[in-house]
């Protein structure tokens, strides 16, 4: 279970406060959506969960399965099951996708005290997962994300998610840059990973994604805290009324 308690976050180098007492709980097996206007702190929340530098937590805590993860390095959090699908995945020139996937998979397995995968095991595993996401095996021989289309980048993120077998998946605007077909493939990939032991936090601007990945709960994030929580129908309401109701206070 993910428990975010009264989380206050500012930028490390500036006095800008971004999250102002955000509290949220996502039980295992559930998918929660976070919606909100630009600048409400959605991406900050994703980065702070994953442990990116540049943010300072001034108050509150983040517990994953009962343990605080705030003091952990990003790779330790990854080993503990935290996965962030990036809005803008980074390009790594000269490093083939397969090399990256294998290095990451084995790094995580090692930290989880599982046996590292042998080459044949790994190849079998990656081929199986790639086929499900409609990823051409040839694409994995290209350098990570270099020259990828928006759809290829997002499918590649979901492939990494499938390979690393996380228990907490954070998807940051995974729908951005996707056409309808790609959106369907990515959503199917995410849905396939839904399970009783996995919690998911889906961050998005638009209700569209939530037609494909149907959430158990929807939270509205504005002005650095959760303003409203509801069922999946809340997303439809927001689509009609917009965020004006919540941003008035912020302005």
């Amino acid at each position: 279970m993910l428990e975010i308690k009264n989380l206050n976050v500012k930028l490390a180098d500036e006095d800008k406060v971004i999250l102002k007492g955000l509290s949220l709980t996502v039980p295992k097996g559930e998918v929660h959506a976070i919606m909100g206007p630009n600048g409400s702190g959605k991406s900050t929340l994703a980065y702070v969960l994953a442990g990116r530098d540049g943010y300072e937590v001034t108050d509150g805590d983040i517990l994953w399965n009962g343990d605080s993860i705030l003091e952990m390095e990003p790779d330790e959090r990854a080993a503990k099951g935290v996965f962030l699908a990036f809005q803008y995945p980074m390009e790594i020139p000269g490093v083939a996708g397969l090399t990256f996937l294998r290095t990451a998979t084995n790094a995580v397995r090692k930290k989880r005290e599982q046996a590292e995968m042998t080459t044949p095991e790994f190849m079998k595993f990656v081929k199986e997962k790639a086929a499900k996401l409609n990823i051409d095996y040839e694409m994995l021989k290209r350098p990570v994300n270099v020259g990828f289309s928006g759809g290829e980048k997002k499918r590649s993120e979901i492939l990494q998610m499938a390979m690393l077998e996380p228990t907490l998946c954070v998807l940051d605007e995974t729908d951005s840059g996707l056409d309808i077909d790609a959106l369907k493939i990515v959503s199917d990939g995410v849905n396939a990973l839904r399970g009783p032991d996995r919690a998911m936090l889906v961050i998005t601007h638009y209700q569209r994604l939530l037609n494909h990945i149907v959430p158990d709960k929807v939270h509205v994030l504005a002005d650095g805290r959760i303003q409203k929580t509801g069922g999946k129908e809340l997303a439809l309401e927001l689509e009609k009324s917009g965020y004006a109701e919540f941003t008035g206070k912020a302005a």
Partner: peptide
């Protein structure tokens, strides 16, 4: 080597040192 690139690799489970080694080996591959 940007912080973003290192963070991306670390989020995938690599330690910071492994991340630098991976990025550098990619850089010198040719």
């Amino acid at each position: 080597i940007s912080d973003d690139m290192l963070f991306y690799c670390q989020q995938r489970g690599l330690s910071e040192e492994e991340a630098v080694a991976l990025v550098v080996n990619g850089f010198v591959r040719d």
